[in-house]
């Protein structure tokens, strides 16, 4: 019996399939070179709806609050035809933490967004609000609500618990249904896990159009700014 079990185990090891290769990045000649470290590919539910909303705009303008990524620029800029504005708030957060004056961040963020009101069709917040303290979050949320056009969409991710090993993560768009997670910078504890009602209060002028709870215990939330778009 034990011999049969050994043979079966040996055969199963022989026939075990290799792990599937990582999904291909966004097609394009300027593809970022593959990082030797494995980067998990995680599915997303809200991105497809976010992209769908952008596709309805004739010349959408997108504001990205995360770090600039070549594949994302190609995806949103070249494939979707968006004008992409990059305002890396993570970089500001990191810099103020390093300089030992995180309390100055809200005042800095007040002047961080020079764009005119209602000039943006979509905003990518990623998981920024997991790392901001409440005063900074209030400032960024106020700017976000100001910048969005009527019917504009906001994409955000919110963890359901405090992650002890949280790191800033770059979300590289693979396609409409998947991100590749690329960790960077030093570990940084999340400030807090916001409750749904807190998120609702934070973006008081917006309404939640979709909320997905993923298996990764992350909530993906799509907000829309109420109003009617004028056809220009």
């Amino acid at each position: 019996m034990s011999g049969v079990g050994k043979v079966t185990g040996f055969l199963s090891r022989l026939t075990r399939k290799a792990p599937p290769p990582a999904r291909a990045a966004v097609a394009g000649p300027e593809r970022v070179e593959a990082d030797p470290a494995p980067e998990p590919v995680v599915s997303t539910k809200a991105l497809r709806k976010f992209v769908g909303a952008l596709r309805q705009c004739p010349s959408p303008t997108l504001l990205d609050l995360g770090p600039v990524l070549g594949p994302n620029i190609q995806y949103f800029g070249e494939q979707l035809g968006c004008k992409v504005i990059v305002e890396d708030v993570f970089e500001s957060l990191d810099r103020f933490e390093e300089e030992g004056r995180p309390s100055d961040l809200p005042a800095f963020l007040e002047t961080r967004f020079p764009q005119p009101a209602e000039s943006v069709d979509g905003i990518l917040c990623w998981n920024l609000f997991d790392f901001l303290d409440r005063p900074s979050a209030d400032v960024v949320a106020a700017h976000v609500m100001r910048l969005l056009k009527p019917n504009g969409v906001l994409f955000g991710m919110f963890a359901t618990d405090r992650g002890a090993e949280a790191r800033f993560t770059k979300f590289v768009v693979v396609d409409d249904d998947a991100f590749r997670h690329r960790e960077y910078s030093r570990p940084r504890a999340r400030r807090a896990a916001m409750q749904n009602r807190d998120i609702g209060h934070l973006f008081g002028e917006l309404r939640v159009s979709d909320l997905f709870l993923l298996q990764t215990r992350v909530r993906e939330v799509l907000f829309r700014k109420p109003g009617y778009r004028l056809n220009k």
């Binding site: 990082d35 600039v68 800029g77 070249e78 004008k83 504005i85 990059v86 890396d88």
Partner: peptide, 11 residues
């Protein structure tokens, strides 16, 4: 990767 950019991209 590693480049710094702040502004807008219109393609």
């Amino acid at each position: 990767e590693g480049a710094h950019f702040r502004g807008s991209v219109d393609m």
